[in-house]
Design a protein around this nucleic acid. Structure first.
Lengths: 198, 198
DNA sequence: GACTAAATTTACACTGTGTAATATAATTAA
DNA sequence: TTAATTATATTACACAGTGTAAATTTAGTC
């Protein structure tokens, strides 16, 4: 890297920083669909037209911001520490680094990953599944199994419900290559491995 | 149920059906943000003004559609079969029913849960984590562990990566009540229970 | 200090929004 | 069947936002 040292104009850096900060700010206050180029430019204290010198529209800007985010995360996951170690050993520091990175930039990540951004349907569906998992875990059998594993209760809930909805979405995305029954069986297998202690 | 038999005007039923079908159709062709009341009414072959007699705006319409979806799903999860059985036994038919319901209405669910709806950031992040999980599972150790459990490879990938990103998002949503290190430890525990065979 | 590039200002044509008033069509009830 | 009610259509309007163009000002680079 750093071959030809592009050295971007500080005005460009400044404008983009203002825009991205303003975007995060607005996302803390409004739903995405309410963020207009108008408002964004106003909040960023730049001219509306200037926005178009940098991004085609707001989705395009989000795309670019996502690119940057991915670049950051990739840098962490490909850190030198991970190369010579085994998978088992390298996973731990990678995970810690990733989570710490997110924690350090939590204002950004929270707004980007965890606000109203989740379209209403997924959100509602997830909530329902979460209730289901909670109910399940609160039964005596669930409590016992959980206690044996040393897994925090709410974390197990997050994990289980996200896994469920995420797998369903992936299944749909891949045009349902397995029958519902087969999927259900697989869920049972995966579940069991959470709860049955060795 | 069926106390006062509200008996909605067939015109209302028709208009809402046209609108919702048109919405699904458009969502198959465009990103959500490109769906305007204009286009929607045109596609539904109703007058634009009529839309406002039923919904405040498009997010409001999505909200209502989500309500209906949740009602359907809830009906399945609270089916009579589930009441007298134990948790373990009732879970299986519920899961099958749920998945079959989704499969039957897959055009709707696919568009609603699995299209471009996932805001770019989550999508990109999920893709990255998926790569990570794939790489991990393709190693000899991973293959062996997987074979022992009888879990399908790609399903394990979907499951693991969704669980990961979903848990991270929940952690952020709850304002990070655990340290990154603790979270990482919990991930290791949950992971281990997938792979270590009894 | 001159050159270059970014940002601003102003303007314009366009698409979409939300509401109001009135007219027409379909449904329901007498 | 007629009369009522109620949904939808039509037209119109004020407003907010979009994306682009041209000329100008401001800031950075060499």
């Amino acid at each position: 890297m750093d071959h030809a040292a592009p050295r971007t104009d500080p005005r460009i850096v400044r404008t983009r920083r203002l825009l991205r900060d303003a975007f995060v700010e607005l996302l803390e206050e409004l739903d995405v669909e309410k963020i207009s180029v108008n408002r964004l430019a106003e909040r960023a204290t730049i001219n509306r037209v200037t926005f178009y010198l940098h991004y085609r529209d707001i989705p395009d800007m989000m795309e670019k911001m996502a690119d940057d985010m991915i670049e950051d995360i990739r840098a962490i996951l490909q850190s030198p520490a991970s190369r010579q170690l085994s998978v088992q050993e390298s996973e731990w520091p990678l995970m810690v680094n990733l989570l710490q990175h997110i924690a350090e930039h939590c204002r950004f990540y929270k707004v980007i990953l965890a606000t109203r951004r989740t379209p209403i349907f997924t959100e509602r569906f997830l909530r329902l599944l979460t209730d289901m998992v909670v109910e399940r875990i609160e039964r005596p059998e669930g409590e016992a199994a959980l206690a044996a594993t040393g897994v925090q209760r709410d974390i197990a809930v997050w994990y289980g419900s996200s896994a469920l909805i995420g797998t369903i979405i992936s299944w749909l995305r891949h045009d349902m290559p397995y029958t519902p029954v087969y999927m259900a069986k697989q869920f049972m297998l995966l579940r069991r491995h959470h709860e049955k202690k060795s």
